[in-house]
């Protein structure tokens, strides 16, 4: 049949399409991050430091920023916001502090995951310094106070007068992974 070579070409193209779409599935992961940064879905926060561009302060309005601290399951640390809420003008640089205590007798690592509500506000929250940018190492029985510096963009929509920043502290990293997985294993063994 004279259609045979034609078939091959078409099949070849369709297979490429399949492979492309499989790749696209994975490409959705970074695309989603980009999408979140543009739209502020889910209040995901940019995890890099913002440039400390000094904006003129918009003194015509005050915005309240609340801080919530949460501890993930399996983390025995204590985690507290020393400042629970601040009022500030958009453009004004502010500094708050958080303490984390590692009560155990071994070194541990912690990672704080930020989230902002309303989600849209995350686009206008610029952090110049934050402990959430990387994993934090805590010595045995150590208590650390971390500063967090941020300002709100002047373009923050006027409809937003209150925003909430939440940090969930997970135990992670080299030291922690071992202990978590050991605990997990022990649990499985107890079957």
């Amino acid at each position: 049949m004279e259609t045979k070579p034609d078939n091959k070409k078409l099949i070849y193209r369709l297979c490429i399409a399949v492979a492309f779409m499989f790749g696209f599935g994975f490409a959705l992961v970074p695309l989603y991050d980009v999408f979140c940064q543009i739209t502020g879905i889910n209040g995901r926060v940019v995890v890099n430091a913002s440039e400390d561009e000094l904006q003129t302060v918009d003194e015509s309005r005050l915005v309240t920023v609340e801080f919530i601290t949460r501890i993930a399951n399996g983390n025995n640390m204590t985690f507290e916001a020393l400042t629970k809420r601040v009022q500030l003008h958009p453009g004004q640089l502010s500094e708050v502090a958080f303490t984390v205590k590692n009560p155990s007798d071994v070194q541990a690592y912690a990672q704080a995951i930020p989230s902002v509500s309303p989600g849209q506000a995350s686009l206008f929250l610029n952090k110049t310094e934050c402990f959430c940018f990387q994993q934090q190492e805590l010595e045995a029985n150590e208590t650390v106070t971390y500063p967090m510096k941020f300002y709100l963009d002047r373009d923050l929509p006027h409809s937003i007068s209150l925003l909430t920043v939440s940090y969930t502290l997970y135990k992670v990293g080299t030291g922690a992974v071992v202990s978590v997985s050991q605990e997990g294993k022990r649990n499985v063994e107890s079957l």
């Binding site: 399949v18 779409m21 599935g25 959705l28």
Partner: peptide, 9 residues
């Protein structure tokens, strides 16, 4: 062809 590979992903 467009979406089954995404499910696989």
């Amino acid at each position: 062809i467009a979406v089954m590979p995404v499910l696989a992903g």
